[in-house]
Amino acid sequence: MKSLKKIFLNGIVDENPIFRLMLGLCPTLAVTTAAINGVGMGLAATFVLVGSNLVVSLLKKLIPEKIRIPAFIVIIATFVTVVQLVMEATLPSLFNALGIFIPLIVVNCIILSRAEIFASKNTPLAAVIDGLGMGLGFTLAITLLAAFRELLGNGTLFGLTVMGSTYEPALIFIMAPGGFILLGFILAFLNAMRKEGA
């Protein structure tokens, strides 16, 4: 059994869901048009991940093998709906910005896969730490991507103008192709760092 510290750091570095496991790419590319959206989506997903991991781990002995998928999905969907309702009540602008991608957290690969691979086979504490690690890794990754896209494509960062008025925003970075290209560059950079360091 790995130490809790190792489990936590695993989700941020070694098995970062976006940069290493390549899971949850759908919201990654869709909502990273502004840095604040990245943070919002990341934290919402982290809450769901921690919650569902905890519940799945607590119930792991009670859920029969044959219905584990519907059971997991119901648990995950419940957490997502709670997040959605709370967000609509307290953070309406973020809620609108994330739009349909909040309900899509239900089928975010990261959450179901961690429930299946980790939470259903480990203690509740380990599952919570894994959820935190993976969730934060996800948040950091998409916020990084979103920061780049917002900076290059809009000249702002978290809504504050950073690039001077003479900067002509490269709109491609806000659009889908730009997102893919930028993600590709980040991955290439990280792979190169890994190879050299190793």
Binding site: T33, A34, N96, A97, G99, G153, P169, L171, M175
Partner: peptide, 9 residues
């Protein structure tokens, strides 16, 4: 009002 249009666009 409420919308989900792309930020910056």
């Amino acid at each position: 009002g409420t919308n989900s249009e792309t930020p910056g666009l």
